[in-house]
């Protein structure tokens, strides 16, 4: 297990190094000089010069890179051009909002998806299976932000059950907090659920066709016991990977859905930065979310190795 951990951590470190290199390189995608995009055409040479210094563009490339790594490693993602404050601070301040929506949709998607998928597997090729699979496919085909908009029209504007947008911190009342994140979380969970349900069904079907399940059936155990005791635990293992995969999709989805519901999270911060080309925030935000994603997947892989010895020996 220790060897597996060492290998896995080394792998993550390499990927992290490349991730930060890519975020650093993003600014080089700007056609021409980045300052011309950021400033109005009427900008004075002094203004251009100041911005070049602020972005570190006045130094040679290797030095810029060294600077960037030095700062990033000490947790400093630079200063936002627009907000005139530290990027790290701005991100951390908004992180709880984004994480609570992502975590709640993840929990909902996994719980509902797994239940539906296992139900489908147990009724393989019969009507519950067909209903679950059709619904799953439909969920995969709906744009999450559009579903959010429809929810606003129906449940907020129409029925008035939920606020149309905004975010209430949990300190101001649990009910109000729950109401403010219910619709965005539900929109995200429903579109991700389909993927989970399909994977859960495949995994369960796979397990139910294995010899040890046939043996359990053959020795006269009840179907419920076989499914719950022999089937389910084995079917759940591959679903850990699924959780890692949809964590990425959910982080991306949250970014867009925050825009729909005017929720002041990391996503709105980054999209605001993208639209106004506030490079330090774009770079910092991308790096930040990539690190969250890598961490989630690191935890998933370690859990996977803990429950399945074959993984850590491979």
């Amino acid at each position: 297990m220790i060897r597996f951990l060492a290998r896995r951590l080394a792998g993550s470190a390499v990927v992290l190094l490349l991730v930060s290199l890519l975020t650093f390189g993003l600014i080089w995608l700007v056609p021409g000089d980045p300052t011309t995009v950021l400033l109005e055409a009427s900008a004075t040479p002094e203004q251009v010069g100041r911005l070049r210094v602020a972005l570190g563009l006045d130094k040679p490339l290797p030095l810029q890179m060294l600077d960037w790594y030095g700062r990033v490693l000490s947790g400093d993602l630079g200063q936002s051009i627009l907000l005139n404050r530290s990027v790290t601070e701005a991100l951390l301040e908004r992180l709880p909002v984004t994480l609570s929506i992502a975590a709640i949709s993840l929990t909902l998607a996994v719980m509902l998806g797994v239940t539906a998928g296992i139900l489908a597997a147990l009724f393989h090729n019969r009507w519950p299976d067909q209903i679950v699979m059709s619904t799953a496919l439909f969920g995969l085909s709906v744009p999450d932000f559009w579903l959010g908009l429809v929810f606003v029209v129906v449940f907020a504007l129409g029925l008035g059950w939920f606020p149309t947008g905004g975010f209430t911190p949990i300190e101001q009342g649990v009910m109000e907090w729950a109401r403010s994140i219910a619709l965005p979380s539900l929109a995200l969970a429903l579109t991700q659920m389909g993927f989970v349900a399909r994977m859960a069904r495949a995994s369960m079907l796979d397990v139910l066709n294995q010899d040890f399940v046939r043996t359990a059936d053959a020795k006269g155990l009840s179907r419920t016991y076989v499914v719950l005791r022999h089937g389910l635990p084995n079917a759940l293992v591959p679903l850990l990977t699924v959780t890692g995969i949809i964590a990425g999709a959910l982080l991306g989805g949250t970014v867009v859905i925050e825009q729909v519901f005017s929720i002041p999270g990391v996503g709105r911060l980054i999209i605001g930065a993208i639209l106004s080309r506030d490079f330090p925030v774009i770079q910092g935000g991308l790096l930040f979310l990539a690190v969250v994603y890598l961490l989630v997947n690191l935890v998933v892989d370690i859990l996977y190795a803990a429950v399945d010895p074959r993984v850590r020996l491979a």
Binding site: G11, V14, V15, L18, V19, L21, L22, L26, I27, L29, V30, P31, G248, A249, L251, G252, G253, V255, V256, I270, I271, I274, L275, R277, I282, L286, L289, A290, Y293, L294
Partner: peptide, 24 residues
């Protein structure tokens, strides 16, 4: 493949937005 892993670490939709916005 490590480079591919690095690109996949970014939420795909956000990466596409950043690139599209930066390039115009």
């Amino acid at each position: 493949m490590r480079l591919m892993d690095a690109i996949m670490a970014f939420p795909a939709i956000l990466l596409a937005m950043a690139i599209a916005a930066v390039m115009g």
